[in-house]
Amino acid sequence: MIQMEDGYLYYPGCTLKTKASDYEESSKKVMEALGKPLVEMDNWYCCGAVQSLATDDIMHQIAAVRTMLCAQEQGERELVTLCDMCYNVLKQANKRMKEKPDELETMNEFLDEDPDYEGQVEVHHIFELFRDMKDEIKKLVKKPLDGLNVVTYYGCMLLRPNHVSIDNTEDPMIMEDILELLGANTIVNPKRTECCGSYHTVNRGDIVENRVEEIVARAAEDGADVIALSCPLCQFNLDYHQRVSDHKIPVLYLTELMALSFGMEAGLKKHKINPRGALKDFLE
């Protein structure tokens, strides 16, 4: 159980202020409604988006450690991310520092202008908070998402590698459990834990198109009205790359659906595939 007095210290990451502002806005509103507002860190650094895995690669852990240090300096031990990639990188880097005291020492020596990182901060994804607040969520549902068919999509970074997974790696249910509270009809499909193509969207768009087609075709077959997820990169890929697909399934952040069921509108602004048609029964 993760606990903070008046809310949670929040790490946004590079994308949440612009391209994924729908996710930030809806998450903030949902957490506010739950009485545990997200409080943005005073200072933070881009995590690097993908974890650097080499045994000797300490340099690419610096940004994550700096962010942990910022949390430590604010007197907090719990840090919450919305973005799956941020969650994964911060969690892996933090774990590495905790498990390898010699690397932490090297790191602290390099960061000689700053105080030492003591390795005490814990990184959480916002879904973990939701898992601990099921009763509160249920109470806030004013407009149940009755009849809305939602296919969940986890992607990679919440589930793999094993040591940072927020749920069962092969059969996660954390999103399904929340959607059930919202009254939505959830559809579990095997593509939900397969990679969307990730950063290949920069220079190998065709690969991502193939991945996205497989994922949305299966979602369509299963009767999805919308796809729900949390990673800003998955959101972009599944949303943008459907431009070459026959399918046009809106791709929503789970928190946008939560806000909607709470009777609020949040986000829903930057989607390439307009979700308003699929959600018309639940919008004012």
Binding site: C46, H60, A63
Partner: peptide, 10 residues
């Protein structure tokens, strides 16, 4: 590509 090493500020 920034790794937040802070070498620039120094």
């Amino acid at each position: 590509r920034c790794v937040s090493c802070n070498t620039c500020s120094k």
